[in-house]
């Protein structure tokens, strides 16, 4: 059963188009990710799904209810963690929990089992002001507060932005555990490497969904063979590769450059000879598999060409 059904939604702010005719569905029980850079439209979309803003046109149905008509009955069923830390900095950890529980007519005790795996890590700081917590701990408190009324759908806007890699990893583990307990989760992130944490992802850019699929299928749909190329001077390597007659795309990827060709099959020996003649040293060329960023880049380029 679909928990979210969005049809042809658009949203503009003045001349800026935030969402451009989006349609998608999220099934019950999914851990669904929206992945895209700042300004892609993630926050606008989440604010529509959580009844906080209205689309200019199109319909959005969440948990069988219309986000505009039925917003009052829908709100208590949603847990929303906005991108900005939205708890009360001058209330303590415990006071924030009590406040958000009472707003939804419940208490920490009543739903303790659900939040316990996360909240238990905060209990030794119960009296500390929320504003004085570290980034990772703030994030855990915000998640606990969004969960305290036992929502059916959890919507998290960039929950892992600005925290370190360990906290991010732990956060995704927490989301996966909640998801295992039957809560549908929709989360956004600008970090492509977090795609693998989701069951399905929508890649989003400039208000358009570029592709929706499992992370594995998105990567698999990248057809061109990729060569990972390395040389002592990255700067000169990129220049020379762009000047090679068969070049299709040249993108730095960490220690390597990902290179694709206009030809079906690139010729490694020819390429190596070309780079050696150009005076580069420390050359290494090997076939590699695409990752999610290769796919995203290719889809972005298509979107610009056709859009």
């Amino acid at each position: 059963m679909n928990i979210v059904e969005v049809k042809n939604i658009s949203k503009s702010y003045g001349k800026t188009t935030a969402l451009d005719d989006l349609s998608f569905e999220v099934a019950g029980g999914e851990l669904f990710g929206f992945i895209g850079p700042d300004g892609a439209g993630k926050t606008s979309l989440f604010r529509i799904l959580t009844t906080l803003t209205k689309p200019d046109c199109g319909t959005a149905n969440v948990l069988g209810m219309d986000v505009i008509e039925d917003y009052r009955s829908l709100r208590p069923l949603l847990g929303y963690m906005p991108g900005q830390f939205a708890l009360y900095q001058d209330l303590s950890v415990r006071e924030n929990m009590n406040f958000f529980a009472s707003v939804f007519g419940t208490s920490l005790e009543e739903n303790y089992d659900l939040v316990a795996p996360i909240y238990s890590q905060l209990e030794k700081f119960e009296d500390r002001l929320a504003g004085a917590l570290s980034g990772g701990m703030k994030q855990k408190l915000a998640l606990s507060c969004a969960l305290i009324h036992k929502p059916e759908l959890l919507v998290l806007d960039e929950p892992t932005t600005g925290v370190d890699a360990v906290s991010r990893q732990e956060f995704w583990e927490m989301l996966r555990r909640l998801n295992d307990e039957g809560i549908t989760v929709i989360a956004s992130t600008p970090y492509m490497d977090e795609a693998g944490q989701c069951d399905r992802v929508a890649l989003i850019d400039e208000g358009n969904i570029l592709q929706i699929d499992t992370p594995e299928n998105i990567v698999r749909s990248f057809r061109k063979p990729i060569l990972a190329v390395k040389a002592t001077s990255m700067y000169r390597l990129i220049k020379e590769l762009r000047g090679y007659p068969w070049t299709h795309s040249v993108q730095p990827f960490g220690e390597y450059v990902h290179y694709t060709e206009q030809r079906e099959e690139p010729n490694i020996d020819e390429l190596e000879a070309y780079l050696t003649d150009a005076g580069l040293s420390g050359i290494s060329i090997k076939p590699t598999s695409p990752d999610i960023e290769d796919s995203f880049i290719a889809l972005m380029k298509d979107n610009h060409t056709h859009g």
Partner: peptide
């Protein structure tokens, strides 16, 4: 942080 993957790479090329 937060920029699209094409812009990010243009940025690293500036660094190189």
């Amino acid at each position: 942080g937060g920029v699209d993957p094409i812009t990010r790479r243009q940025f690293w090329e500036q660094i190189y």
